[in-house]
């Protein structure tokens, strides 16, 4: 029984970090810093596991901005429904590893000179 528990613990320890980093962590995103500017298409939504919004990038693509989880995003000053369509924004963070996906895991959002730092512990 003790042996079985040890094997189970080892298996969990070996596999967990990899699984966790697949999407909801940062592992699914490129290490390089990334920035995209554009105009808001869908305002801030605080529904679901992460807050989200979409913008029309200056490059013509629709970008999905994945923000922090809702409580943290709200604490950073971004409330549900904020930033009406057409608002000019710049998102700073990390782009999704899949180059066909126009998604940025956003650390900071700059709107008209004001910065919303949803991940203040990250640079």
């Amino acid at each position: 029984m003790k042996k079985l528990l040890l094997v189970a613990a080892a298996a969990v320890a070996l596999t967990t970090p990899r699984i966790v980093s697949a999407h909801h962590g940062w592992g699914g995103y490129l290490d390089a810093e990334f920035e995209v500017s554009g105009t808001v298409e869908t305002p801030v939504s605080l529904a679901g596991p992460h807050a989200t919004m979409t913008i029309k990038g200056a490059d013509g693509h629709q970008w999905l901005l994945t923000l922090a989880p809702p409580p943290r995003t709200s604490a950073a000053g971004l409330k549900d429904g904020m930033l009406p369509a057409g608002t000019k924004v710049t998102a700073h963070g990390h782009r999704h590893r899949d180059s066909n996906r126009f998604e940025v895991k956003t650390e900071r959002l700059t709107v008209d000179g004001k910065t919303y730092n949803v991940y203040p512990d990250r640079t």
Binding site: G48, P49, S74
Partner: peptide
């Protein structure tokens, strides 16, 4: 309800 009843709703239901 899930979207409009507070920022902790999803986390609590998920829990």
């Amino acid at each position: 309800f899930m979207r409009e009843s507070g920022v902790w709703t999803y986390a609590i239901v998920n829990l």
